[in-house]
Amino acid sequence: MEGDTGSGLAWAMGHLQYLLLVAAMLPARLVRVRIGVIASAIAGILATGLFSFEPALLFWNVALLLVNLVLLLQFMRSNAAVRFTPDEEPMLKALLNELPRARARHFLDQGLWLTGKAGETLIRQGEPVTHLFYIAEGEAEVTSGGKAVGRVGPGDLVGEVTVLSGDTASATVTLQTAARMWCAPAQTLRLYLDAHHDVRHAVEMSFATALRHKLQEMNKAVAEAGGLR
């Protein structure tokens, strides 16, 4: 009877191992994949070492567990060592919070921080968007056809709508005050994101969120002004 119970538990743990392994492949973030594989290896160890002793399978499950534990610890240590400047921390939380810190650091290193002067044009309507901007401090006016249609300020992106597609800008964005900005060349971003699909997914999600926020603010401004005239 005990043998039947042990065999049943080994069978259940064996299937649980593969279920966990399949589930581990689903998350986009690598750390979750590692954790899933570790959980799968533990189930395999229970199945082949405790409920039904199979030395060869036990060895490979232990190896799978140890390798992923080492890789996970290395990943956590590298993330813990990453540092961000006071300018970068808000950008990290607002736009890159879906990325591991090490990956976010790598993305930010594709651009640089600069100070813009009032009156400078960041992007011009009808022309290709050559740079992506993140405004940390300062304000800019958005115009289309010579008419003001909105404003952007701290926490906003400029150029995210067309920077990756290469299309021309649908509006002109001009600084109204001095501004502290992160800036990255469009061509550099395209090449980088083509080579790093996990970062591309997170960045495109952030772009979509930023665009939705801008549209909400624009609709709010139009409503407060009494509608379109």
Rank of each mutant, 00 (worst) to 15 (best):
L26G: 04
A47K: 03
A118D: 01
L46D: 01
V199R: 00
A169V: 02
L57Y: 07
V142C: 00
Q176T: 06
L66A: 13
E54S: 05
G3I: 05
V142E: 02
V199S: 07
G145D: 13
G3Y: 09
V203W: 06
K147A: 10
A104C: 02
F133H: 11
A186P: 12
A41F: 02
V70S: 00
A23L: 14
S206M: 02
R77G: 05
A94L: 12
H213E: 15
G119V: 01
A56Y: 15
R83K: 10
Y192Q: 06
L50K: 03
H197Y: 03
L215H: 13
E89Q: 10
R83C: 09
H213R: 15
E89A: 06
Q187A: 13
Q74E: 13
D156G: 03
T121G: 00
E54V: 15
T188R: 15
A10M: 06
D4H: 11
T168K: 14
A10T: 10
I38V: 12
E217D: 12
A118R: 01
A39M: 14
A208K: 08
E204Y: 06
T209C: 04
A140D: 03
F59T: 07
R229N: 02
L50C: 09
G6D: 14
R105S: 10
W113D: 02
T188K: 14
H106D: 14
M91W: 04
R200V: 06
L19H: 12
G166C: 09
G166I: 05
A148H: 03
Q125G: 08
T130D: 15
K147I: 05
H213M: 07
T209F: 05
V31F: 08
W113R: 03
V31L: 10
W182I: 07
E88T: 01
